[in-house]
Every structure is written in structure tokens, then in C-alpha cells.
Design a protein around this nucleic acid. Structure first.
Lengths: 150, 150
DNA sequence: CAAGATTGACTTGTCAATCTTA
DNA sequence: TAAGATTGACAAGTCAATCTTG
């Protein structure tokens, strides 16, 4: 019999499936709360949050993409949708760059959405874990990201 | 000043964002590998895997949905697409139930896909973690699921 | 040419409404 | 009526190809 070195042990496979399932559920619930309460997707919320934290509420599209880890076309479609809904505007900047800028409306929508969203994150992610577990989870996530980006 | 009890601490927020980012990246990479190597989405793969593990490669659509934690319409669309590609068939079963049954072709596609997929899961998820971290991560995921399903 | 932005075609997932049969 | 299945409209994301300007 050939050595099947790729095989996952039962424990490893279960860990993978359980983690996958947990994250899918979590994402769905967060998404639903945001949608129902504020009409935002999680992607909308994240873009608004990142822009609102940038100086002048403005960021190069390119850097925004890096920050979020999104492909340029995904970002572009997202910004187009958000632009159509008046949450951001695009402004040509320098030579061949574009700035995404959060609008007053975008900021208002975000401000409105933050408390309930944060409460949901707390309820579904922070509260069920001990602070050690939360720290562990974050540390492991960082390790995974580091490995992914190598 | 009002007590802002919903606020997430910097640590909590960072943990949430880091975890979110890790999981998004991970999912994308897994998805890409599957797509490139086997023309399967992760959803396809998961359905095939679950069916292949069921007695006779057959499962009530309803139970399949429960197992995966998917809504019925998602499952329905998914099965339709997989049916179109000859990987499963639907069979009326009992009174008002439908069985999803993996076909020989579906099983062949799955069998083909397993090694490279498993290798990728190992490379991106299992190997970068110590076995204690893996166990921690799985345990935390279970806790999150338990909380979500309450 | 190359960095960065844009486009369009296509796949997946969500929601809400509807159908079917015990 | 209710369990379970189906449908269709739509939002989101992916890929590959193309445009633009230094």
C-alpha cells in the first residue's frame, strides 16, 4: 500500500469541518443583523469602518484593497455600489490613483450601525469565550494569516 | 457621558477583525485550489463528501441541509447545479421527501479531488498550528457553534 | 511597458413567495 | 395547516480581459 501522506487524521478533519462550520454560521448571523438593522452588508460596514478611521475619511483605493485583502475588481464593484447609495465618493488623486472618500451620509449610516453591530459581535463572538480563549483565537488567526501570506 | 456598554475594547475588536480576515483568506485559498484542480467549489466538495459518507451515498435533502447548516433554497440551488453536472441525482423518496444521491461520476470527481484538497487543508490550516493550537481552535469553534445555535 | 482602474460575464448565496401533498 | 420542496429576482464575489496614463 502506498503511503498516503496527505491524509488528514479524524481529529484534524473534524477540527477543519467544525471550524469551517463555526465561521460560516458566524458570518451569516453577523451579516443578517447588519442587513436587517442597517441595510448594510458586512462588506459595506467594513469599508465604512476603515474609511472612517483614515485621515479625512479618505484612502487610496489601492491601499484600501491591501488593507482589506480584496482583489481590485471586488473593491471596484463594492465602491460602485456604495457610490450609488451615496455612502462614498471616488476622487481622482495624483496621477493615476483614486481616493475613496466616506461621505457625511456614509458616516451617519456607519455611526447608526455601530452599536447594534458591536453588540452582536459581542454576543456571538466575544461573550461566549473566556478572555484567554479570545486571545488564543486571535493569536491562532494571526498565525494562519502569516502562513497564508508567505 | 452615557455608559457605552456595547463598545468593544481594542483587544476585542482586533481579535474580531483578525479572525475574520484569517477566515476569509483561508476560505478563498481553499476555494481556489479546489476550483483550479478539480473544477469544484467548496460547496460542491462538501456535498459530495457528506453524501459519500452516508449509507448508499444517499441522504434526505432535508437532513443534508441540517447537516450542512444550509437553508433549503441554498441547498436546492446547489443540488440543481450539481445535478446539471451529473454529480448527483434527486430521487423522490417516501411521501414528501427527496433523496440526494451521489452518482458514480460524482464519486469519481470527489475521489480525484480529495488528495490535493486535503494537502491544501493541511498546508494552510493543520501544519502551521501546533496540535494544541489545533485542538484549542476546534474547541473554541464548538463553543461558538453551541452559542450560535442556542 | 507597468501600475492601477474598469468592465462584463458568470457563479454563488439570500430572501421572500409559492407550490405540493399528507 | 404544516413539512418540505421549488422558484425567481437580486446582491455579492471571481475571473479574465481591457482601458488609461506615466
Amino acid at each position: 500500500v502506498t503511503e498516503e501522506q496527505w491524509q488528514l487524521s479524524a481529529v484534524e478533519l473534524a477540527a477543519w469541518r467544525e471550524s469551517f462550520r463555526a465561521w460560516e454560521h458566524l458570518r451569516l448571523r453577523i451579516e443578517r443583523q447588519l442587513q436587517a438593522a442597517s441595510g448594510l452588508s458586512n462588506a459595506d460596514y467594513t469599508v465604512l469602518a476603515v474609511l472612517s478611521e483614515a485621515p479625512d475619511g479618505r484612502l487610496r483605493a489601492y491601499e484600501l484593497g491591501e488593507t482589506l485583502g480584496w482583489e481590485k475588481s471586488r473593491l471596484h464593484h463594492q465602491l460602485t455600489r456604495m457610490g450609488d447609495r451615496g455612502m462614498i465618493v471616488r476622487e481622482r488623486c495624483g496621477s493615476r490613483g483614486i481616493d475613496a472618500v466616506i461621505t457625511a451620509h456614509g458616516l451617519a449610516v456607519l455611526t447608526d450601525a455601530v452599536p447594534a453591530h458591536s453588540r452582536e459581535v459581542r454576543r456571538l463572538f466575544v461573550d461566549p469565550l473566556s478572555s484567554k480563549q479570545l486571545a488564543d483565537y486571535a493569536r491562532i488567526s494571526s498565525a494562519l494569516i502569516a502562513n497564508l501570506e508567505r
